[in-house]
């Protein structure tokens, strides 16, 4: 029983990391209608920035904040100078562009810092605390909490501020937004920046566990995409729930299902997807999109 609770808590923590990445993907999709396969790669680049700063003696929290600012600028710059040209065109081409971006970003990280695993300092102590008689790791709880806070803050930004209102307007209908005087192009840059920030938070939190490599978040990206498919592209809440579900289920399956084990747990979300797709192609929480011809 105790093991079960630990597995669930750890699952929620990794699930939160997938959720942050998945939310970033949903954010970009709702603003620009494309799937950013480089979301994880950009987050890795941010983690490397934080790592370099900590090596220079900067305190970890400051380094992470600096890497978050860096990601915001990076996201905005990528939107402005790379993606904008492809946003109104064929979505398949835009996807290939983001795949190229992933290769490029991974290549930059590998070229600057090598492909060897680097130790990334953890934001939380590695001890465990006893909650209701079950010991769970502080890192898992901390990771989950930080990401929940980040997600709530993002949601508050979108619902409660003027900037959020403008971002939503652009996402719903860029043309009308432009007619009503909104600076659509700058808002798209902000949207990409915020998405990159979410990714950077996830990257900094998961880097101590995975150890820093250029391909660190490739698997996490796959989980995040699985969460996006399961939750439905139109439903941020659904995506987060799906990400947690995936995190918990894969942890449980790794331990309790003999054949899967730790090496094959990456298959769990896809077994889940296959089951869900047969029943609900629009995802667990998504709406069916109806297109007028």
């Amino acid at each position: 029983m105790e093991k079960f609770v630990q597995l669930v808590v750890d699952g929620l923590s990794t699930g939160s990391v997938y959720a942050a990445l998945a939310l970033a993907i949903v954010l970009v999709h709702s603003a620009t209608g494309l799937i950013n396969f480089a979301q994880g790669g950009m987050a890795v680049l941010a983690a490397y920035v934080a790592w370099v700063l900590t090596n220079q003696g900067v305190p970890l929290v400051l380094a992470i904040v600096a890497s978050i600012l860096f990601s915001f600028v990076l996201g905005a710059v990528i939107e402005r100078f790379l993606m904008r040209r492809f946003e109104r065109g064929d979505p398949d081409t835009a996807v290939v562009v983001t795949v190229g971006l992933l290769t490029l970003v991974t290549g930059i990280a590998g070229w600057l810092w090598g492909y060897n695993n680097q130790q990334f300092p953890s934001l939380f102590p590695l001890d465990t605390v006893s909650v209701l008689g079950v010991s769970v790791s502080i890192r898992s709880i901390g990771t989950t909490l930080v990401i929940v806070v980040a997600m709530v803050a993002t949601q508050a930004l979108f619902v409660g501020t003027k900037l959020g209102l403008a971002l939503r307007a652009v996402a719903i209908n860029p043309q009308s937004a432009a007619y009503s005087g909104l600076p659509v192009e700058r808002l798209l840059m902000v949207g990409w920046g915020i998405a990159a920030v979410l990714g950077a938070v996830a990257g900094a939190l998961v880097a101590p566990q995975l150890t820093l490599t250029p391909g660190m978040l490739d698997n996490a990206l796959v989980y995040a995409l699985a969460a996006v498919i399961l939750g439905g592209l139109t439903s941020p809440v659904g995506v987060v729930i799906a990400a947690w579900l995936i995190g918990v289920l894969e942890n449980l399956a790794a331990v309790y299902v003999g054949f899967i084990g730790f090496d094959l747990k990456v298959a769990v979300p896809f077994i889940l997807i296959f089951v869900v797709l047969i029943v609900r192609p629009q995802g667990l929480f998504g709406r069916k999109t109806v297109v007028r011809v």
Binding site: L104, T106, G107
Partner: peptide
């Protein structure tokens, strides 16, 4: 050798 990925990404873009 460490430039392969970078060059491929840059070439694709």
């Amino acid at each position: 050798p460490s430039l392969t990925a970078l060059l491929q990404g840059a070439l694709l873009l």
